[in-house]
Design a binder for these strands. Structure first.
Lengths: 208, 208
DNA sequence: GCGAAACATGAATACTGATTCATGTTTCAT
DNA sequence: ATGAAACATGAATCAGTATTCATGTTTCGC
């Protein structure tokens, strides 16, 4: 009943070959990081294992010491993005008690994160097609947090009534669309401006 | 200086082999429709030409009479989706003068369309990775219409001030997120409920 | 410092699936 | 009615690339 590898027990997808030495650890990190860049730049299908390993500075066979398949490295990147984004947002949000202010801060933190990690952003979007389960997990974890926050805020009378699920999806949709502007369309509007306009819409709607 | 094939001159992507007989027309339609189903269901990469032609009831080689490459059929499907969606929304919106009401009607029409055409919806999303140019075109055409509508409404004092570009992206993000709930996550919330909640958020924001 | 486990190599394998092509069949303007 | 263009066929080609494997090299607990 123990847990030798020290993995999170909740994770279904246990990496099949955790490195056991410092060297292995470093190599796996190098491959993951190379995969992030190569897949982020060329997309999953056009990214080859050869490109990834060459970018990582290791031989092609080395890849399969750490990942069972090409899809597995992708899936790990999606998980990583999930962890990082949730951490970033909860960090940026923690000290703020006002819900609408927290909403604004979370949006700003999210957009800054995706601007700093465009490759990860693209990978999560592509997960929809490459690894739907990973995508669902990423998206659900996110939505759950959002929804419960909104529910509390409604209970506290901080915001108006409204189905928290639908609202959570809508707010995530706004964040995603603005992230796409930055990462995919190369939009240069400063993040604070995007946040200001979007947050005004979120807080007050379009009514004159 | 004439335009023999009668194509729209503005279209960059002229189909290289327009069918010239009724039979050809029917065959091309069959292949397009089969491609929509097969690619929509399995994704671009897992969909093979063989599956598409077999679903269409024609031989494999026939595919290449009408499409130069696998990517070309995909690209045509994205264009088709763009035409259909814009038509559907403008149809649903035309008679409504009140901007916020038009917004609601457009959202409802969009969601009903994607519910009726889940394969096309998925294909447009995947275009982001398979054919970025087609995706950009789809998205831009959409955003342009949105933006100019919002600008007018601001000028008429129908809605509050706010950057029309950012607002257009945000509103499109909401629509996309709700469409994803329906098509990708199989969410059963009735469309009118989704529309009601989302439209209330759009019109009034979250403020209590 | 030893040796077993871990790690690394890169050439060989194995397979998939897009595209081509040589050969028929059908359509339709004349 | 006819023949040239259009359409259809499906087996063969051909390239790319994920994965395996037999063979070294390095690490690290003892």
């Amino acid at each position: 009943m123990n847990n030798p590898a020290g993995n999170a027990v909740m994770s279904q997808r246990t990496p099949f070959n955790q490195p056991k030495t410092a060297r292995g650890e470093a190599t796996k990190k190098a491959i993951l990081s190379a995969a992030e860049r190569v897949i982020g730049a060329r997309g999953y299908n056009d990214a080859s294992i050869g490109q990834i390993t060459s970018e990582a500075g290791v031989a092609q066979g080395t890849f399969y010491i750490y990942f069972k398949t090409k899809e597995e490295v992708f899936s790990e990147l999606v998980l990583e993005m999930g962890r990082l984004v949730r951490h970033t947002i909860s960090e940026a949000t923690q000290t703020i008690s006002n819900r609408l202010e927290a909403e604004r801060a979370g949006l700003a933190a999210f957009l800054e994160f995706v601007q700093a990690h465009p490759d990860l952003y693209r990978i999560v979007q592509e997960a929809q097609f490459v690894d739907p389960d990973a995508y669902r997990e990423y998206y659900s974890a996110f939505a759950d947090g959002y929804r419960s926050g909104l529910s509390e805020a409604v209970a506290d009378g901080e915001i108006s009534e409204g189905d928290p699920d639908t609202r959570a999806w809508a707010l995530m949709g706004i964040a995603r669309a603005l992230g796409e502007q930055i990462v995919v369309f190369g939009n240069k509007t400063p993040i604070p401006d995007l946040v200001a306009t979007a947050h005004d819409l979120i807080a007050n709607g379009l009514k004159p």
